[in-house]
Each structure stands twice: as structure tokens, then as C-alpha cells.
């Protein structure tokens, strides 16, 4: 039996406190890229009772994703936006989910992201990471931006850190472990970085801006 909305809110409030939960419920967070980082960030944020998620990815679920991304074997071939919003609806049925099955570019980023309070960058391609950081910080001043760089390989999860580079710009990861130059991506290490990003979002919403 699925709990009703009031029961879910009461359960969130019992754990997060009424005041903080109000802020989490009122927030809109965009997740750019729904791979190992983005699928895990989305699940953590929906479990925390974030009011609305904007999920953006152009890709489909592939067998090569299943070792670290929050999809199921029976979802191979589905657009990630569709598969993830389905999985989120089972976890947190009252989180509002807006999906865009498109590639984010310099040209469409402002339109896609202007409704978000906080933007999480969760791409795998370093060029796309740099493009989005530059575009958001230049064209959407005042939005909090939580990016990621360096979470590949089998190195210690203790190397994964959150840095606050400037007032609105946070960066999670070890900064150096690049896919292709190490052993590949491991679910738990990618999840550790995604957890840094998701928790940074929650701390920002709680007014805890330091790292």
C-alpha cells in the first residue's frame, strides 16, 4: 500500500525537522546527465523529499550502465529520463519530476535550467562538464552549481571531497581520477561522489554553505 502525500511528508518531517523539510519540499533541483552520478543524485534527493527534480539526458539505458547506474536489466533500451522517473516514482511518489530527453548545449542550457534553484552537473564527458560550468556561471548568476570531476578508478573514497570554489560554485570528486586512465568506474566510488553532490544540495538548502 502506497502512503498518501500527508503520510510521506510527516515521515520526512519526523526525520529532517519541519522547518528544513519545508525548504526541501519547496526546492527545484536540476540534474544534468543521468548516468552513474545523476541517477544516484536523483535517488538521494527524491528520498530526501526534494519537491521537484528536473532530469535531463539524451541517452538510453545500456548494458554497460548497469554496473553503476540506478537502472534495472529490464530497462535496457529505455530513455534514461523515462527509466529514472519510473524508478523515482516507486521510491518517492510525490516528488514532481520534469524530464527532458535532450542533449544540453550552450544554446539550450539557460531555457532548460532557469527554473532550478540548484543545478547538479553529472556528465561523464569533460568537455560537457566545462561547457556547463562556464555557461551556468556566466549566464545564470545566482544559481548554485554543484559539479563533479574525478571519481574513476579504485582509489580510496576518502580522496573524494567537496570544494567550494566560489560563492555559488561547488565541485565534488578527487579532481584527477579520469576514466580511461585508470581501472574504469566503480559503483561505490561514483556513488560516493554523487552522495557528496546530493548532500551539498541539501546543505545549501539548509543554509549551510561551508564545506
Amino acid at each position: 500500500m502506497i502512503p498518501n502525500k500527508n503520510e510521506m511528508i510527516a515521515a520526512y518531517e519526523a526525520r529532517h525537522g519541519k522547518e528544513l523539510q519545508k525548504k526541501l519540499s519547496a526546492a527545484t533541483v536540476a540534474v544534468c546527465g543521468l548516468g552513474g552520478l545523476g541517477s544516484n543524485i536523483s535517488i538521494a534527493l527524491s528520498r530526501a523529499g526534494i519537491g521537484k527534480l528536473i532530469l535531463i539526458d539524451f541517452d538510453k539505458v545500456d548494458i554497460s550502465n548497469l554496473h553503476r547506474q540506478q537502472y534495472k536489466a529490464n530497462q535496457i533500451g529505455l530513455p534514461k529520463t523515462e527509466a529514472l522517473s519510473c524508478n523515482l516514482s516507486e521510491i518517492a511518489p510525490y516528488t514532481v519530476v520534469e524530464t527532458h530527453c535532450v542533449k544540453i548545449t550552450e544554446e539550450n542550457a539557460v531555457d532548460l535550467l532557469s527554473g532550478a534553484d540548484i543545478i547538479c552537473e553529472a556528465f561523464d564527458n569533460p568537455q560537457a562538464k566545462a561547457m556547463l560550468a562556464n555557461t551556468v556561471l556566466e549566464k545564470l548568476p545566482g544559481k548554485f552549481y554543484v559539479g563533479a570531476s574525478g571519481m574513476a578508478g579504485i582509489g580510496s573514497t576518502n580522496e573524494i571531497k567537496t570544494k567550494r570554489l566560489s560563492k555559488f560554485f561547488y565541485l565534488c570528486g578527487d579532481g584527477v581520477s579520469e576514466v580511461g586512465k585508470s581501472e574504469g568506474l566503480f559503483a561505490a566510488r561514483v556513488m560516493a561522489c554523487a552522495a557528496h553532490q546530493a548532500h551539498t544540495v541539501i546543505r545549501i538548502l539548509a543554509g549551510q554553505y561551508d564545506v
Binding site: G38, D124, A133, S149, M151, L165, S166, K167, E178, V179
Partner: peptide
């Protein structure tokens, strides 16, 4: 603490006391 647009890299001159952060993104996600 302010983003420097790529178009302004060539015209932005560094001076004593400036704080510059160059973020080099690596692949993986």
C-alpha cells in the same frame, strides 16, 4: 571568485594579489 568568460581570457591581465582558480575537468560520471 568570478567566472572569466573564454572570450575574455586574452584581455584579462593578472595582477598582484589576484586569486585565480583553473578547474580542469576530467572524464567520468
Amino acid at each position: 571568485e568570478d567566472i572569466v568568460s573564454k572570450a575574455n581570457y586574452a584581455s584579462t591581465v593578472l595582477k598582484d594579489g589576484d586569486v585565480l582558480e583553473v578547474v580542469n575537468f576530467v572524464g567520468g560520471g
